[in-house]
Amino acid sequence: MTVGVIAAVVAALAFGTASVMQAHAATRASIDASPLAAMIHPVFLAGMALDAVGFVCTAVASRTLPLFLSQPIISSNLLVTAVLAAVVLGVTLSRRDRFGIAVAVVALVILGLTAGAEGRDDPGLALHWGLLVAGVVLLSGGLVAVAAGGRRTALPAAMVSGVLFGLMTVAVRVVDGVDPFRLGEILTDPAAYAVVLCGAGGFYLFTAALQTGAVAGAAAAVAVGETVIPGVVGAVLLGDSARAGWGPVMVIAFVAAIGGAVVVALSDVVAAVE
């Protein structure tokens, strides 16, 4: 479990720093321009390199920790974003911001203490195919929303992006042929293609949401989607569980961690990275 926790923390640090860099680059492009214009900005590319580090660490954490523990830790990248913006940009953290950070940190510590062993259940190909099909449907809807243009596309694009990231995390957890490594199994597993589709699609839609300047709302929507979906699927379908007798405490801490992250996401400090 120690390796998984370290990987999740590194992922949070990488994603949090990358968000500041990507938001800076995305808002330099016109709202009417394609999100691809922002993606080729040098600062955005540097952020993408950090995202790659974060993705690898996310994969390690997702396969070694219960998803209700790994995802809140990774979603705490919003706390990193807020603190980094305060330090680098000189923005003052409000009382609400500090409260949100404190709640999230305490909740994450409690989750770590109450988490049991990672579940080993796998419903089989039905789940693997379901992840891929759901990813295709959601990505199609998100692309339609982005094509409509305007600032009103930010929230739906961000919401779909968050769910796609959540599906990607579940797909990473269940994909066959990883340990031990068997390339043939990976290439024939629909979950592997769900990882690629949901990851790339979620990244594109999040960029589109950032490009409208709605960083806070986009970050909050993504935090909820990429945390709740894997946490629920892990507990219901994959066998993730808390230590005996600590289930209610785990649920409260899980909700508190999400709430703290959303409070920080909606703060002026996160908006200051625009």
Rank of each mutant, 00 (worst) to 15 (best):
A23Q: 07
T92Q: 15
M21H: 14
T27W: 08
V264L: 09
V9R: 04
D32Q: 13
A200F: 03
L197F: 01
Q22H: 04
T227S: 07
D121C: 06
G201L: 01
A148T: 07
L143C: 04
A117Q: 11
V196S: 13
A194N: 09
R63L: 02
L266A: 00
G247K: 03
V233Q: 07
G54D: 10
A221R: 03
P35W: 08
A171I: 04
L13Q: 06
A223N: 10
A11T: 04
S140M: 08
A157N: 06
A86C: 04
A12C: 08
S76E: 00
Q71T: 10
G217N: 01
H128R: 15
V269G: 12
V105E: 15
A154S: 13
V106G: 09
S34Q: 07
E226G: 06
L266K: 02
T188E: 12
G16C: 08
A86T: 05
V222E: 12
D97R: 03
V53Q: 14
G217Y: 00
A107C: 10
F68R: 14
M168A: 12
R95N: 09
V264C: 10
V9S: 06
G247M: 04
V9C: 10
L164N: 03
V224C: 13
V233P: 05
V20G: 15
V91M: 08
G116S: 10
A117R: 07
G47A: 09
A46C: 06
I101L: 11
A11C: 04
V262E: 05
A33G: 10
L132N: 09
G225S: 10
T114V: 10
L183G: 12
P230Q: 06
L13E: 10
A29D: 09
T92E: 08
P180N: 15
A126Y: 15
A147I: 03
A33T: 08
A104G: 12
I110C: 08
V269N: 13
G141K: 12
G231Q: 03
A102T: 14
V3N: 15
T188C: 08
A86Q: 08
R173H: 00
F44D: 13
Q22M: 03
G47I: 00
L138C: 10
A244R: 09
S76V: 00
N77M: 06
L89M: 11
T27Y: 02
I101F: 11
